[in-house]
Amino acid sequence: MPVSRGPRNALGAAAVAAVLLTGATGCGEKHGTAPAAASVSASAEASASASVSAAAAVSASASPSTAAATPPASSASPTPPPAVSRPVPPPPAQTRLTATVDTRDGRLALVRGGAPQEFTVTLRNGNSAEYRHVLVAFQMEMLVGEGGAGAGSGPGFLLERFDGASGGWRPADFRIANDAKPPALFSGGSPLAREAVRTERYRLRATAGGPTGSSPVVVSFIDTDADGEVAAHVVLGHSTR
C-alpha cells in the first residue's frame, strides 16, 4: 500500500537540506575557499604596488642620465683671438735736393748777334728739408779769344729767365768774373717744399759786339737764408764764335 508523505515529512526534508547546505559552507571555509579569494586580491594589490614602485625607480634612474646628457648652458664670454703683431716698416731714407741742366746737344754753342739758345734748370727737392729761398746763380770766367789772353773780355752776353706769370722773358743775373762770389753775398730766390719739383726756363744770347771763345758756365744752387749751396753745381760747356 503506498505511503503518503504529509507536511511533517516535507519539513524534515527541508531540515536535512539545510544541514547539508550548512555543512558544505563550512567545508569551504575550512579548506580556504574564501581566504583564497582574499589572497588573490592581496596579491593583485601587491603586484600593482610593485609595478608602480618599479616604474618610479626606472624614472628616477633615467633622470640623472638625461640631465648628464644635456650640458649646462655656459655664461662665459667667448675668448677673443690673439692679436697679430705686424712689423713696423722702417722710416724712408733721407733724400736731398738735386739739380739738372738740360741744353741742346749738352752744351751752349752761340753766335755773336745770333739767336739765343734756350735751356732748362730743374730742382728736385728731397724729403729732409724745405727751403724758403733757393736761388739759381750763373757765372762764367772771362773769355780768352783767338787773339790771345784778354782778347774779347767783357760782358757781351744777355741771360734771360722765362716768367710764367707774365708769359715773357725777364733779364737774369749773369756774372762774368775770374773769382768766385761767396754764397753769403747772394740774395733772393724762390721757395721749395719737401719733395717738390721746380723747373725754370732760361736762354742765353751773345751780343754782336761781344767776345768769342769758349769758357764753361757754372750753375750754382744757393740757400740764401743759410748762405750756402744746397746741391752740387753743374758745369756747362760753352763756346761763342
Results as ranks from 00 to 15, higher is better:
P2T: 11
G6T: 12
G6Q: 07
R8T: 13
A10H: 12
G12H: 10
A15W: 06
A18F: 12
V19Y: 00
L20D: 08
T25S: 09
C27V: 14
G28R: 08
G32N: 13
A42P: 01
A48S: 15
A50V: 10
A50Q: 11
A55D: 09
A57R: 12
S65H: 08
T70D: 06
A76E: 06
T79P: 02
P82V: 11
A83I: 10
V88L: 07
P90D: 09
P90I: 02
A93C: 03
T95L: 12
R96P: 00
L97T: 14
A99T: 10
V111R: 09
R112I: 00
G114D: 04
A115H: 01
E118C: 01
L123R: 07
A137Y: 07
Q139P: 00
V144C: 08
G145R: 05
E146K: 12
A151M: 04
S153C: 02
P155N: 07
F157D: 02
L158C: 01
D163F: 10
D163R: 05
A165E: 11
W169D: 02
W169H: 04
P171Y: 08
P171I: 09
A172P: 08
F174D: 00
F174A: 03
A180E: 15
P183A: 13
G189F: 06
L192K: 08
E195Y: 01
V197M: 06
T199K: 14
L204M: 07
A206H: 05
T207Y: 01
A208H: 05
G209V: 02
G209E: 05
P211C: 00
P211A: 15
T212C: 02
T212S: 14
G213Y: 01
F221M: 07
D223I: 04
G237M: 00
